[in-house]
Design a protein around this nucleic acid. Structure first.
Lengths: 215, 215
DNA sequence: AAAGTTATTGATTGACTAGTCAATAAATAA
DNA sequence: TTATTTATTGACTAGTCAATCAATAACTTT
């Protein structure tokens, strides 16, 4: 019987949670299963987390935090808006923490957000963060179209995620990043007048900025 | 006690399944709950469906079928490739069957695909269908870039879905369709040479066509 | 009307699980 | 060493739920 500090145990349990959710492919993981995977007894999971939902939410926050760190780090290295957009595109996919395990868990957290208000709030935090990062750097490239374009780029990133949650090829990260870059390149090009895919209204942002659940 | 034909009961149970999954926000719906919502006893659900998973898969097929019908119908009305693409963009969102209930259920079926091979297969059917529809009409607009562009458009559609699964505003369908049209317009425009978001390789299709699980 | 057929019921079984808690093992202090 | 504090255990409770099946209700045929 090994004794450890609280923060260490919590981290182990969170890691085990993500691991087991991915292994089972759903949130129907038993606490015993998670505890066993973390190398502790079931009782300890409830000692450090109020209930199973708290454990799930902690895992969400963990993933969100790592993602945020990764983005910030990549952005620090980048200089021009173009470089920064590239950094965002790749940070969303290439990070070591965004491999199969994490992606599968994240997909399940999306469904958690259907019932849990806190999970929904966390998801909005992610969406808003991504959106504002994109808008910030798109401004200088597409001007007032930035929020509108950002919606589509964010949507594309999420959609590609979904795809890779099921596919799970090896170099998925790079491919996805590439796609985002191409979409950005296309969006940054002036629209030709002879394009037949006309848009009836020139409203630059048909969707509200994501600002519903304030922190 | 009312007696009905098999096809009718099956349809009612499937509808109840989608309804209850959406209501609960997860696949953790009890069979009794579904049966009650369909106005029958729990035993009957097991009489018409081998087990709960079969019921879920039947619900997936049902959604997929309705979506396919909607797309085909819209495509019949459309003439030019531009009109057809517009039809696809809107059919994915505007259909009466793609409202809150269905979207929430569909999101949950994505996680089902993490464990169930058959669910995964059904999801691939949807993805492949969407992809080939897009490629077919993109050919005349972007030539050999069609498969590559189709990936992004499909990704965007899926990503916007995800967004609306949680948001649930009223005119979400129209907004999303609009976004897809704009992305299409952007992609159909020639890339300017002075664009700084350069793509290292001019490979027109970095991803394999979705053709893994053959029927 | 009686016998036969088919749809439907709901009580039941057996398995599983979230969360609790009293007991115990390890570390620290006296 | 002994006493005290703190982390950890795992048996246990109370509840849930998938799936079964014998009984029954509703139609059909004779």
């Amino acid at each position: 019987m090994v004794r450890k500090a609280e923060h260490e145990r919590r981290a182990e349990l969170i890691a085990a949670t993500i691991r087991e959710i991915a292994a089972v492919g759903s949130l129907n993981v038993t606490t015993s299963q998670i505890a066993k995977s973390a190398g502790v007894s079931s009782g300890l999971a409830f000692h450090y987390f109020k209930d199973k939902d708290s454990l799930f939410l902690a895992a969400m926050r963990d993933i969100l935090m790592r993602y945020g760190m990764e983005v910030r780090e990549e952005l620090r290295k980048a200089g021009t808006p173009e470089e920064r957009l590239k950094a965002i595109a790749y940070a969303s996919f290439e990070h070591k923490n965004f491999r199969r395990e994490t992606i599968a868990a994240w997909l399940n957290f999306y469904t958690l957000a259907l019932k849990s208000a806190e999970a929904r709030r966390l998801l909005y935090v992610y969406q808003r963060r991504l959106h504002s990062n994109l808008v910030y750097d798109l401004r200088s490239l597409v001007g007032e179209r930035a929020p509108d374009v950002a919606r589509r780029i964010a949507g594309l990133i999420d959609g590609l995620y979904l795809r890779y949650a099921l596919d799970g090829t090896d170099n998925m990260g790079h491919e996805a990043g590439e796609h985002v870059l191409r979409a950005l390149a296309a969006e940054c090009t002036e629209i030709h007048e002879n394009e037949d895919l006309s848009i009836e209204e020139a409203d630059p942002s048909p969707m509200d900025p994501i600002a519903k659940p304030q922190e």
